[in-house]
Amino acid sequence: MAVSAEPWRRGRAPWRRAAPEVGRYAVLLVFLAIFLVPFVWIWSSALKTSREIAQNPFALPETFRWENLEQAWTVGNFGRYLGNSVIYGVAIVGGGAVLACMAGYALASLPLPGRDGVLFVFLLGLMVPFQSVMIPLYYLLRDIKLLETYWAFIVPGIALRLPFGVFLMRGFFRGLPAEIADAARVDGANEWQVFRQIMLPLAGPGLATLVVFQFMFTWNAFLLPLVFVQRDALRPVSTGMMFFFGRYTADRALIAAGVTIAMLPVVALYLVLQRRFIEGITAGALKT
């Protein structure tokens, strides 16, 4: 993403430019408040007593009750839920990436009869909502005994996101020159080696985009684990959080602490990798 300097707009501080600048920052700051105040409020509530939360939402905590977080962590089982979310994230992002890269590569660069048909089937998958398969899928997963395992989320999670991944990776592979692959074939590389050692490394940016997108999908997925993950021990943080909210709803300080814990890991990750997140999302949306 190139940053172009454009002095025509920023204006080197002639006084006439000052008024629009004030207006611009006024608008930006209002939106900054709209986006941040709810979080600041929840985070500060996490360190208060329930009584304080009811009294004045904008006051600072009288004493910082870090023990709220500790209590929420224990009673809310967040260690387990976050751990499960990591397992789901790794499995779905990893498994989905492998399958999507291979299929995307084949659909972009290998001879394949019926390629248009395959593409069309995947294209439909991009456009139909999850609900169109949700009901039979539940019974299918039950009948093959996957509902009682981590696979209940991993397998449909990968399948549901394949169309997106395949199209994204196909787009990237199509942008690579075919001569490189041919040259490798002439040198005696087999198709797997061509893919693994030549083409895949060149699709790195596409892969990064895919990983960001799939990670966000997996971490935030709600309906899928709500329907398919029925054992508490296997719940990811999204549905685990929902049940926590229901059970302890009367204890506001505890809820605020739970919400804070549930969002901290991903917010921290986002703050560290925010450019990758944003570029990944942008590329994924605009290039598929």
Partner: peptide
């Protein structure tokens, strides 16, 4: 929670787990 149980009990029982 009672409300959430109403929303989820059916799928939980039918899942066999």
């Amino acid at each position: 929670d009672a409300d959430q149980m109403r929303q989820t009990l059916n799928t939980a029982l039918a899942s066999g787990t």
